[in-house]
Design a binder for these strands. Structure first.
Lengths: 205, 205
DNA sequence: GCATGCCTTAACCATTTAGTTAAATCATAT
DNA sequence: ATATGATTTAACTAAATGGTTAAGGCATGC
């Protein structure tokens, strides 16, 4: 059997959208079939079980999340411009993919072993020994371009700032008191505010 | 019927721990009964349905999360000390409660209407019209104690930095490359690094 | 002693859901 | 035209799970 790749893609797309919204436990095979515009029988014909389908989706999602993060790491000499570019492209990336980051963060904890395996594979495939973003910050510190922050903690902070409104939009809207976190206006303001805060916070006076 | 409050509490505690780990969809009534050291019949005798039990737990968790956030807002005059205290107590609070923040953020999106309702109730009960943390920052800006950041975005950034390692520990460990996010050492370093970054980022030069 | 309320036991019901099956249909290429 | 692979239909199975029921046990206080 050779299987129609077009249909396979439709299934994966549908599965992605359902898993992103509801997680593994909340997802229903019937709903995935419906969104793919096919029937449950065919769904199981392509992917034997929910677990297998989930595994496929989860793997590509985790890869994508890390992939996009390192794609936002450019070879810019100037650390200031490097940060600006990173924040802009990274925020564009995650804001574009509704519920992705929320899903991956939730499931990464449920499937922590699997997450680690996938992640290590990606790293070795790319020939990385360390997160390139961390590496870039480390280097900037070594070169005296910025003050001596802990690179790991700095990256953690940076990602945290970028990610939160897309991990828990409703909580953010209510608790922080921001009306609309999905508008283009919010996105642009967010970029500026994050950049200003970290740049002020980083530069060696 | 008057119901034994001790048993009721045992049930709530058990339900909290299961819901925190697995979320609504992943939680099993049987497991909740087991952890409470009672049987399923009694569980349903106290809380008619899974939905009702969840509602009870979710309400107290959401209240708690916000409660603890505003408890970390002190009446400190000096904005620098205010920030230091906030970061320290807030981080202590969330690091202490394994999976709580992760659970609330995940479910707040699944139950966004309910979240909003609960949240508005808390706000009006406390007589708040605006998040006191945002308010404090706003005031500090007005007083010229710090530079003119957008208070909403600043608070969003601050919470994001604090929360991320507890929302997705496995993802953080792998992606950022931090070995252990549950140690006391990590916690203390985190406090310092966040404070330094935001303080440097905030002060009007 | 016995009534009352809390709790257990264990079987049971109903529903949801993952997964299967078999037969029929459709499209396409040979 | 027919064989082949893709897809549908619809009924079905098996298991998990939420929820119920009835009978009885075990305290405590009267």
């Amino acid at each position: 059997m050779q299987l129609n790749t077009e249909t396979e893609q439709k299934i994966i797309d549908a599965a992605q959208s359902v898993f992103r919204e509801k997680g593994l436990d909340g997802a229903r095979m019937q709903e995935i079939a419906d969104r793919a515009g096919i029937n449950k029988a065919l769904l199981h014909y392509y992917f034997r079980s929910k677990d297998r389908l989930f595994q496929t989706v989860f793997r590509t999602e985790v890869q994508g999340v890390f992939q996009r993060m390192i794609e936002a790491v450019t070879a810019t000499e100037n650390i200031r411009e490097f940060l600006r570019t990173f924040i802009n492209t990274y925020l564009d990336n995650i804001s574009e993919r509704s519920y992705l980051i929320r899903f991956v963060m939730w499931e990464s904890e449920n499937k922590s072993d699997e997450f680690e395996t996938i992640f290590k594979q990606v790293m070795s495939t790319k020939g990385f020994t360390k997160n390139p973003l961390v590496q870039r910050i480390e280097q900037a510190v070594a070169d005296g371009q910025i003050r001596a922050v802990n690179p790991y903690h700095f990256v953690l902070s940076l990602i945290g700032m970028c990610v939160l409104p897309y991990v828990a939009p409703t909580a953010v809207r209510n608790i922080i008191g921001i009306r609309d976190t999905s508008s283009a206006e919010f996105l642009e303001t967010r970029k500026k505010e994050i950049f200003n805060l970290v740049w002020q916070g980083l530069k060696s006076k």
